[in-house]
């Protein structure tokens, strides 16, 4: 790191973001995915792919999340993937909505269910980068929507 750390940038590229960027979790693709979606950012070509397999109760059994692109989208995808296991699709959707609202309006300090995603609050200072952070969430939402329209 530099001699005179830049507070803002060290915030954006903080330890947790960089850790998820360098060591993304849950990247192994699933062969038996029930929920599946891929989202692109048309402005930069970045991509997030999300796969979920469900158990007999309809809860998330396994998660695969793969992103190509900048540090923020990769970290956000990895962070989101770590929060979905064991959740019902409703719960996953609610968590996603909470994250979207937090990225727009700011999170309450006690929103610990957002887990590592709380570290992305710093991205709110860089409005053009918010869409990077939200891309995996859009993939989750689109995947759930497609699964439900297929199931019914």
């Amino acid at each position: 790191m530099s001699q005179q750390p830049d507070v803002q940038l060290d915030g954006l590229y903080g330890d947790l973001v960089m850790d998820h960027y360098r060591n993304p979790r849950n990247r192994t693709p699933l062969n038996d995915a029930d929920v599946e979606a891929e989202e692109f950012n048309p402005f930069c070509g970045d991509r997030a792919t999300l796969q979920l397999s469900l158990d007999e109760k309809g809860n998330v059994r396994d998660v695969s999340a793969v992103a190509e692109g900048c540090s923020i989208i990769q970290a956000a995808t990895s962070m989101l993937s770590g929060l979905l296991q064991g959740k019902s699709l409703d719960e996953a959707g609610e968590l996603g909505e909470k994250f979207r609202v937090a990225m727009k309006n700011g999170a309450e300090a006690d929103e610990t269910d957002l887990g590592d995603l709380l570290a992305l609050q710093v991205v709110r200072r860089y409005p053009v980068r918010i869409k990077c952070a939200l891309l995996p969430l859009t993939a989750l939402e689109e995947g759930i929507k497609a699964y439900r329209s297929k199931a019914h």
Partner: peptide, 22 residues
């Protein structure tokens, strides 16, 4: 080691305007 978006943000912090993307 850095994606163009990240390059763009770090340069912007220093007042440098470049285009990043495709």
């Amino acid at each position: 080691k850095a994606h163009p978006h990240d390059i763009g943000t770090i340069l912007d912090e220093q007042g440098i305007a470049v285009r990043t993307g495709h």
